[in-house]
Computed example of a mutant assay.
Amino acid sequence: MDFEFSPKWLAVLFVIAGIVVVFMLMGGSLTQLFSASIEESVLVQIKEGDTCVVEASDGVPRTINNCPYQQGDNITISYKQGLPSLEAHQAAQ
């Protein structure tokens, strides 16, 4: 029995391989995508125009576009360890 991949399956395999390669080049791993979110209270370190920059305890700076906060404000952020994006942010209670 001769097994051949259809063009459709080859395309799916190439897409999956491409995603894995991109994550490897970025220094991340696929497990980071499925890890639990971290919630942390941080200060807004920089505000330039409508963009704020905060830095969590993992040392990764993260930006907030259309930022309603001021430099020095204490806010609560949700993020995944090592990834540069924020999942959520709100004024600290």
Rank of each mutant, 00 (worst) to 15 (best):
A91M: 13
R62C: 08
N65Y: 09
D2S: 10
H89S: 15
T63G: 04
V44N: 06
F3W: 08
F14N: 13
W9Q: 13
V12P: 00
N65T: 11
E55W: 00
N66A: 12
G28R: 06
L25D: 10
N74Q: 10
S85N: 11
M24T: 08
G27M: 09
V53E: 10
E87K: 03
P61R: 05
A17W: 11
G59P: 07
M26R: 12
S29R: 10
G18H: 05
Y79G: 00
P61E: 04
P7N: 12
E40V: 04
T31I: 11
D50G: 03
W9K: 07
E40R: 01
N65I: 10
E87H: 01
L43E: 10
L10D: 08
P84R: 10
V21M: 06
F3M: 06
V42L: 09
D73S: 13
E39A: 13
I38V: 15
E55D: 00
G27D: 03
L33P: 02
I77A: 01
R62D: 07
R62N: 08
V44L: 06
G28A: 05
F14I: 07
Q45R: 15
L86P: 03
K8A: 13
M24C: 02
Q90P: 00
E55V: 15
T63K: 15
A91N: 01
N65W: 05
D50N: 10
S29M: 03
L43S: 13
Q81D: 08
K80L: 12
V21R: 02
T63A: 14
F14L: 15
C67R: 01
V12H: 07
N65E: 14
L86I: 05
Q45S: 11
S85Q: 12
L13K: 06
G72V: 13
V44C: 05
P84N: 11
T31H: 10
S85D: 14
R62L: 08
Q45F: 05
W9G: 02
L10V: 13
S6Q: 11
E40D: 03
I16A: 12
E48F: 02
M26H: 08
V21L: 12
Y79Q: 00
T63I: 11
C52Q: 03
V42F: 08
A36L: 07
Y69L: 06
E55F: 00
S78D: 03
M1F: 04
N65L: 11
Q93I: 09
I75L: 07
L86M: 05
D73H: 08
V20E: 03
I64L: 06
T76V: 15
P61F: 07
S78T: 07
A91D: 00
A11D: 10
D58T: 10
G72S: 12
S37D: 11
K47M: 11
S29Q: 08
Y69K: 04
F34C: 01
K80V: 03
L86S: 03
I38A: 01
F5A: 09
P68W: 06
V44R: 06
S78P: 00
T31Y: 09
S85Y: 14
S57F: 07
F23N: 12
V53F: 04
I19M: 14
Q71K: 15
Q90T: 06
P7E: 14
D58K: 12
V21C: 02
Y79S: 01
V42E: 05
P61A: 06
G72A: 12
A92F: 13
Q90E: 14
A36I: 04
S6A: 15
G18L: 08
A91K: 13
N74G: 00
Q90M: 07
E39S: 15
I46L: 09
L86Y: 03
